[in-house]
Write a protein that binds this DNA or RNA. Structure first.
Lengths: 209, 209
DNA sequence: TTCAGAATACCCCATCTGGGTGATTGCCTT
DNA sequence: AAGGCAATCACCCAGATGGGGTATTCTGAA
């Protein structure tokens, strides 16, 4: 029995690249090209009536960017897997794409055979990424630099972020509220902030807690 | 000219798996097995004197876990790339490994050829992950559920997280401080929190801002 | 059309916060 | 031996915060 081919659509403004991709897809067994679009607008207009499993999306498009397109596509058809295809590898492009709902991210220098492999992988529930992209993504989890805070301070910052006030923190770790306040003042000065909200934000962003 | 092989060390408590991995590595051109260890302790004791590019690390080990081992290895030898090899695919294992500094994560059912490919990739600055793992990692960037906050509220929460007080926020968006306060009260009740710190924490964790 | 929610604005008030200043003890490094 | 930092505790005070209300307008869904 013949397996249903993976239905693919392409959004890519460069005519040559778009057509080449389409040709490769059409010429390969198990892959089917449902549609191609030169911009996000036309793709979004038709997406509802389209049978499609995987979308290849360029980021740099005239008008609506590929990233915004992905965001809208995921709203309209949450089951479509969007695979970004871009020359950009800056954090801005990569992480905004992922946040928008991209299920994979390939650089444009990826050879055709690997693009096809990535399409299969994304369709099987994977998240293919070019090697540089994957590394960047993992690196985003590492603490940026080592904490300037002492252990005690980190502990108190943790409790602070739970919304406890001086007194509650003091009770929790058996210290005087004055001491807590002292620590918090030190935390502020080390993190260069002036309020709990800022401190919590910085702590999370810098992965201190 | 002969290229220097990739030097690999293994930490794995299962004798059979460890020896099989070592054999595969030894038997493949371009790969060299520097050492194998049945536990983290022995690996950490010797790591300083070891020439090694990539470490294969199991997570579930007697004594010090693979995750803690990675954290210590990265402290001692930051240039070593650690590739986790585990049966576990729960968030706990995956994200703690990544935070500890792992540069890749393979499930144990990965066939040998792919393990070798992953070793090469990690050594070239990539971050090979089993398909399920990569997807999980990307999913960690998506907003968990859609925001319960209105646009205005989100805007104000954003400013709140920058450490602005009622008055400053009011000035920034040309509203009365009373209004800001009203909005913030609504934000608190929607997020089920009672302070700025908690609100900011929840907002970031739930990717509302 | 009616009702809910969003956005706007105001009042009261007890409590909490952040900034300033100062002190003691102990540990570590120099 | 000295200076520095972490950790502890203390006091003062102006201003901010959070919780309790109330009210109007507008929009969109039921």
């Amino acid at each position: 029995m013949q397996k249903r081919p993976i239905h693919i659509a392409i959004i890519e403004d460069d005519d040559e690249i778009r057509q080449t991709l389409a040709l490769i897809i059409k010429g390969t067994n198990g892959f089917f090209c449902s549609a191609t679009f030169p911009d996000s607008e036309s793709a979004l207009a038709q997406i509802k009536d389209l049978v499609v499993d995987v979308m290849l999306v360029d980021i740099e498009l005239p008008g609506i960017t590929g990233i915004e397109a992905v965001s809208k596509i995921k709203q309209l058809k949450p089951d479509v897997d969007c695979l970004m295809l871009s020359i950009r590898q800056d954090d801005e492009a990569v992480f905004n794409s992922i946040r928008a709902g991209a299920a994979g991210y390939l650089l444009k220098d990826t050879p055709p055979a690997q693009i096809l492999r990535a399409i299969e992988e994304v369709h099987q529930g994977g998240a293919p990424m070019s090697m540089q992209i994957a590394r960047r993504v993992l690196q985003s989890f590492y603490p940026t630099q080592k904490s300037p805070l002492s252990e005690r301070e980190t502990e108190i910052l943790q409790l602070l972020s739970d919304g406890l006030n001086y007194r509650s923190i003091a009770e929790k770790i058996f210290l005087s509220p004055h001491t807590i306040k002292s620590h918090i003042k030190n935390i502020y000065s080390k993190l260069h902030v002036h309020s709990r909200a800022e401190a919590v934000k910085k702590a999370i962003k810098d992965k201190l807690i």
